[in-house]
Design a protein around this nucleic acid. Structure first.
Lengths: 250, 250
DNA sequence: CATGTTGGAATCGTATAGGATTCATCAAAG
DNA sequence: CTTTGATGAATCCTATACGATTCCAACATG
């Protein structure tokens, strides 16, 4: 006879984007190797861990599958995708080579005062951060790298290019390879050499920051409105990365 | 002690890809204008209509949102995205201009006997279909167009390019615009002119099939292994489409 | 006429039960 | 001892009911 049911969860102040939050959390778990490549993803376990029901988990996993970060096998369940093979990595960089130089070119053509400000801020704050060696240098660099390339894709003014770049999740894949290396999970020799190439992309001779130098060139060209130089410098930036990988493996 | 369970052969033969099926069905509903642009998408109604529970619907909608075909507003629900604006359309074609000529070039470089066979088959069967005027000509043409461009993206050998092209859903957007026109849903004048340009992409002077002619040039170049010609013809194919739209609007 | 309140409708998230399938273990036969 | 088949547990997938929150619109009041 009691109309009020006790024991109902109190959870209030819900912003109601729970499935979005869940998406971000699971994605972060993948990046941070809490979900290792190829391993199974258990829905029940996740719902316990994230303290949510299955529905948001399923929605998040569906989106992640669409992103190519999670694989769904019809009657077996979900699992994280494997690390990129060399071929896939090469393919990914080839794709970046198609769209990013164009994006840089467009960014130079369309650059505004506000755009210059943001671009300058990104470069300056990164250099400042790198001066104080206390933090994980590689982490700072890759995070800057992700922000930088995303920013340029946005400055291109093309939603298609921006979202296509976003969906490559290239920095996520890079970071996952980096984590695999740190955790000594890469036994294959050629793969190990490949990851060494990954480091070389960011460090030059173990001292300077190669990426920052190349990024500066791109950034300056865009701010100067020099579209040809912007395209060329972005092209050589990606090209040289790709070449470094290729030579370190082959 | 009968080990054989009776009544098992009930609903077997379940391929258990119900959420995938649902995804396809909803997508088809969007293309076919059963779900009109901008309108709300009710989960309960869909589950009734498709005779399934809410869970597969939710997963499908999450994927469709990731595809940009469905929009999710936090506490209001799902709705179909609007028709492409002129700017978005221009942007989309600009993106195709970035990746498809490259795809055609690569296809010409990598073409195999099997690839030639498939490409020839696509062209021949389409021409044959168009000879018998009984069917909806526009429908046949757009379906061929979708298959043709997808095929070339596959022949490029780049998974990144293939999936990036796939995710543009460009033919879905085209067909939706076409449907909007047929249903007299486009009142705006410039929008109407725009759709007229859409028709011109496929029909030349109301008689010949422009797309088929241009496709033949591309197809021949690929089969001949002439990568330069393949790139050039694909570029001009997309470029001229884009130009036709621009002039018909401006 | 404008504004605040209140009620219903719709949607989101939760919880739970049960059918279906896969995987691994184990027993039996050759 | 090896191979084959069956049994049971774990997991996935579906279905359904319910509570909580928010939006929308009608209504009353100053």
């Amino acid at each position: 006879m009691n109309p009020i049911k006790p024991g109902v969860a109190k959870s209030s102040a819900r912003t109601s984007v729970l499935s979005d939050e869940t998406y971000g959390k699971i994605k972060e778990m993948i990046v941070k190797y809490e979900i290792s490549p190829g391993s199974r993803v258990n829905i029940d376990a996740l719902s316990l861990q994230l303290k949510t029901s299955q529905t948001p988990i399923r929605e998040a996993l569906a989106r992640l599958e669409s992103d190519g970060l999670i694989k769904k096998e019809p009657l077996k369940g979900y699992s994280a995708t494997n690390l990129l093979t060399l071929e896939e990595f090469h393919d990914l960089f080839q794709f970046r080579l198609l769209i990013e130089p164009w994006a840089a070119e467009q960014a130079a053509k369309r650059i505004t005062t506000e755009g210059k400000r943001i671009l300058n801020l990104e470069m300056k704050s990164t250099m400042k951060t790198l001066k104080q060696k206390s933090v994980d240098e590689f982490k700072s660099l890759t995070e800057h790298d992700a922000r930088f390339h995303k920013l340029i894709s946005q400055l291109s003014g093309s939603k298609s290019v921006e979202s296509a770049f976003e969906r490559t999740h290239c920095h996520l894949h890079l970071f996952r390879l980096y984590m695999a290396h740190r955790l000594h999970l890469i036994e294959n020799n050629s793969r190990a050499k490949f990851v060494e190439g990954l480091f070389e992309q960011y460090y030059q001779n173990g001292s300077g920051q190669l990426a920052i130098i190349e990024h500066s060139a791109i950034s300056n060209a865009i701010i100067d409105g020099d579209s040809k130089a912007a395209r060329a410098s972005m092209h050589s930036h990606i090209q040289s990365s790709l070449k470094r990988f290729s030579t370190s493996v082959e």
